[in-house]
């Protein structure tokens, strides 16, 4: 019994190392996180600016958010396929698809956050002699931060999923290892890569969640 138990342990560990090495998972992870990072940075920059822009043009806010909503409803594999004619195979369409999915939560949360800042803060800021620009940068944006980070958090989870799917269209990353495992029907590979990808998603979500909570606590929202 004891011996058998030990056998399972060492089997697991050696399998893990073997799967990790034959699939060069260190390299795959780096590829994966690079795509993930680029997508998130791009989506954050575009999303926050788009949110700010919509806030300054309330008339087009609704149509624009509806459009982003529409993008959001396209299932991920068809979206990747739709992007192929434009961007070809590989990393680019994967990153573009991730950004497209992440735009809605970040833009929407930025826009809503700016719009729903408690008016008493805007009023007192104006009364103290802050210009409209100062009010935006010193009051509205900082007070929307918890909400913006909330949007970013949703985007992180989407992006982790899309980047993994990128394996289907030769984007590399952990998705490539997972697809290889599925095609060759290697249970160990599927389990290890699947678990590792899931763990990464949980870690990033947890980090973003911590930032969100910290902001909320600092602002006394909780």
């Amino acid at each position: 019994m004891d011996k058998e138990h030990k056998g399972v342990d060492s089997l697991l560990l050696s399998d893990l190392i073997e799967v990790w090495e034959t699939n060069s998972l260190t390299l795959r992870t780096i590829e994966h996180l690079t795509m993930f990072g680029i997508a998130i940075v791009l989506a954050s920059i575009i999303g926050v600016f788009l949110g700010l822009f919509l806030y300054s043009r309330p008339k087009i806010a609704h149509p624009m958010l509806n459009l982003l909503n529409l993008v959001e409803t396209i299932p991920d594999i068809p979206l990747l396929v739709l992007l192929l004619p434009i961007f070809g195979l590989g990393k680019e369409p994967t990153i573009v698809a991730s950004v497209l999915y992440s735009l809605l939560p970040i833009t929407r949360n930025t826009y809503t956050g700016l719009k729903e800042v408690d008016l008493k803060y805007v009023d007192i800021a104006r009364a103290m002699g802050l210009s409209e620009k100062d009010i935006l940068f010193k009051v509205r944006i900082p007070l929307s931060l918890p909400m913006i980070v909330g949007g970013l958090r949703i985007a992180l989870v989407f992006t982790m999923g899309v980047v993994t799917l990128g394996g289907l269209i030769a984007a590399g990353g952990l998705g490539a290892a997972l697809i290889a495992g599925i095609q060759l029907y290697k249970i160990n590979t599927i389990l290890v890569v699947g678990f590792w990808t899931g763990l990464l998603a949980v870690i990033f979500d947890g980090l973003a969640g911590m930032i969100e909570k910290r902001l909320q606590r600092r602002y006394g929202i909780w």
Binding site: K120, D123, A127, P142, L143, G220
Partner: peptide, 22 residues
């Protein structure tokens, strides 16, 4: 100019409105 005018006048309100992020 409204911004200059308001910086020359102190303003205190019931709801105080201290900025929670500062």
């Amino acid at each position: 100019e409204p911004v200059a005018l308001r910086r020359n006048i102190g303003y205190v309100i019931q709801s105080i409105g201290l900025f929670p992020h500062m």
